[in-house]
Each structure stands twice: as structure tokens, then as C-alpha cells.
Design a protein around this nucleic acid. Sequence first.
DNA 1: ACTCGATTCAAACGATTGATTGAAACTTTT
DNA 2: AAAAGTTTCAATCAATCGTTTGAATCGAGT
Lengths: 219, 219
Amino acid sequence: MPDDNALNTKEKIFRAAVSVFAAKGFAAATVREICSRAGANVAAVNYHFGSKEKLYAEVLDFVFAGSEALPRAAAATPAVGSPEERLAAFVRAFVRSVYQSCEGFDDCELGAVFLHEMANPSPALDHIVDRYIRPDARVLFTLVREMLGPEAPEDLVWGCGGSIVAQVLYHCAIGPITSRLRPAPEGMDMDAFLDGFADHVLRFSLGGIEAARRSLARS
Amino acid sequence: MPDDNALNTKEKIFRAAVSVFAAKGFAAATVREICSRAGANVAAVNYHFGSKEKLYAEVLDFVFAGSEALPRAAAATPAVGSPEERLAAFVRAFVRSVYQSCEGFDDCELGAVFLHEMANPSPALDHIVDRYIRPDARVLFTLVREMLGPEAPEDLVWGCGGSIVAQVLYHCAIGPITSRLRPAPEGMDMDAFLDGFADHVLRFSLGGIEAARRSLARS
DNA sequence: ACTCGATTCAAACGATTGATTGAAACTTTT
DNA sequence: AAAAGTTTCAATCAATCGTTTGAATCGAGT
């Protein structure tokens, strides 16, 4: 029967896998490095998880699932209030869920995992989209539609929703560029930066949606 | 001395490398597949280019360099005219340079190469940033500053510029998601789609910049 | 103390990778 | 036509990958 030590080894491998997969993606990560970081034998991954791919699928699900402290955007969006207020909550939670490290991890951002998954999609992506991303998208697009009005064409709703998502994902999508073009000042307060970033995205997006609404009324 | 046949083999390898690297990125691409597609021996890459890495560096430079038919955004932005007009030209050229296939290639978008490079930056990225990305960024941020006014803080200029870049890169950053959430209709006219996409990004961004300007005047 | 299932470990396996080698084929020069 | 230089090729190298193996180790139940 699995005792504490066994669970500890499995847990240690899982935690190491989260960090390594986040840093390197599925293909570039090696089970040897994961086991080395976990202080375990190379065979431990296959013994406890079946294969590297199954371990990755579990990690992916864990990273995307969110938590109470770091909920997914849809879960943090209230059902009542003005569309602007709800969008503000959505964007703030979305930004945090992408850039804040997973609970109990120093070095695992969903954004990093996500980027590797976009560059090299794994079979597990379908499940992630259905389970986690589609609900978030649904909340966002419903909100955008409320703000654009019922006569807005579907394409415009998706366009504006995409513009919001794009801005949130910006830093994770081009991190290596910003670090070269405009390196972040050392000792920066990450929480304050994320709040300011979310504020900017919200303000910029409200202006963008307003412009889209105007162009709609004009035609 | 290199004759036509030699040039042909080198050229064929280069063209195959462009496609393979764009589709898989540097690490996942293999010299065996490149040579196979080129109808050449495995040793040809090292003979003609020195190493897989040097070949990749040449491919990267080619993809980012742009062309007369597909210029980089900065090169397509006129020096005169209203900031709005110049931003429109910038965004249109930017969108095309990211999503339109390189001249003479059916399956090489800068966006695909870029995405892999962001997920797994190569040593060649520094040169690409200095040579190609920094000039584009300079033109964009100068434009944004013109529209925000001289009293706008640097952070706001970078924020709004980033919001524009983010929207343009959206589809390349989350392609696997959109294809699952909202598959593109088959037989879609890519040129028309890109024009419409650029129009949306421009309109949305003008609204966003206007909102940022207003928030500036208010404080 | 002994047994038995669960876990860990060093060692190795087969496959694949980028790179190298030296001879063969080819082109150009003499 | 012989020589020199360039290019191609099959074969192979060392390294690394995920996975497997079988024995050693451990811990709880009898």
C-alpha cells in the first residue's frame, strides 16, 4: 500500500514536472531532469505516471484548473453589475491567472505553459480547451455582446473579444522581445505591475469597444 | 567553383529548411527531414551551411527581412500624413508581414516562425531584434506618442503600442485555440480576411488610444 | 521472524538526433 | 586526357532520448 514516502516521491516528481514543463514545454523537457530535480530515479516517472505524456497531461490540467486563490477568469466574474464592472473583474482575474505563479510554485506561470502549448500543441489540448478555455471565452463574449448590442454581427463580437484576449496574453506571447527592447526594472513589484497592466487593458478595451459600437451605429 | 547544380542543392535545402523550421521550430525540426524534402543527402546541411544552427540563423534572417512585395511594417509607413493614416498603413503592413506567406513560399508565415522563437528563443534572436524588430517598434511608438501628446508618460506609450502589437499577433499566438473554438470557414479568402482584421485592429486601437488620451487629460 | 506487495534503483535497450568520415561522382582547369 | 577541386553519398559516430528490466530495498500484516 502506498505510504507517505511513496506519495512523497510521486508528489515531488509532479511538482518538479510542473516547473520543468513550464520552463521548457513538453518536447524539450526530459524525464531525466524532472527526476533529477525531484531527487528520484529515472524510472519513477513511468512507474508513478505511466509515461512522460501522461504526466504532462496531468500537469497541464493542474496548471489550467486554477484555484481558489487564483481562479480562472470566468469564475471571478460576478453575474450581476454593469458590463463594464464585470469586464473589469474578468480582465483582472484573467491577467492574474496568466501571469501569477500557480499556488505553491515559485516558477510556474500558466502563460509559460500556454505559450509552449500554442507553439507545439499536444493531444491534451482538446480537453483543456473544452474544460477550461471555452467557459472563459463564453463569459467574455457574452459580456462583449452586451456592450455592443444585439444588432452587432458575430464577427465583431469575436473581433473585440479577441482584441481583449490578445492584450492580456501580450507579455507571455512576446516576453523575449520586451526583455530585449525594454528590460523590466529590477526589483519591480509584480502585483502592482499586473494591476496596472489590467487597468490599462480594461481602459484601452473599453475605448476600443466604444469605437466598434460607434462604427456599428454609423453603418 | 560552385556551379548551377551546387547552387541548386543549397537553394533546395534552404527552401526546405524555411518550411520545416516554420512548421516545427528549430528544436523539433530535423536535418533529416529537411534534406529529405530537398532530395539531398543528410550531410548536405553541414557541408553547405556548417551546421543546423547556422542554417536556422539564415532562415530566420530571411523570414524577418521582408521583401518588396511583403515589406516590414516600418518600411510601409509613410513619413507624412496624419498619425491616424500612418498608423493605418503600419497596421496593414504589419498584419500582412505576419500572416502572409513569404515571397515564393506556400507555407511559411513569419508568425509561425516567430511563435516558435518566442516559446524557445535561439541565440539568433538578439540579432533579429536589433536588426528588424527595433526599427518597427521605434516607428510604432513614435506614432503612438504623437497621438497621445508629449505629456503622456512613457509607460502609457508602451502600453498602447503593446496593445496594438498584441492584437496583430493574436491569431499567431493562439491559433490552436481559435481553430478549436471557432474553426475558420473553408475556402475563406485570406486576403480579404487580413484586410478586415487590420481594419478592426486599427479601429479598436484608435478607440483605445483615444480612451487613454482622455484618461490622461482627466488626471 | 517471515512473507508479500509496493517502491526504488542501477543498468541497459532501442530509437533518434546532429555531426563526421572517406570514398565515389562530378566539374572545371590545365 | 590527366589533374585538381567541388560536391554527393552511404556508413557510421557519439550523445541523448523515453522506456524497460530485474534485482535490491522497504514496510505492513501475520
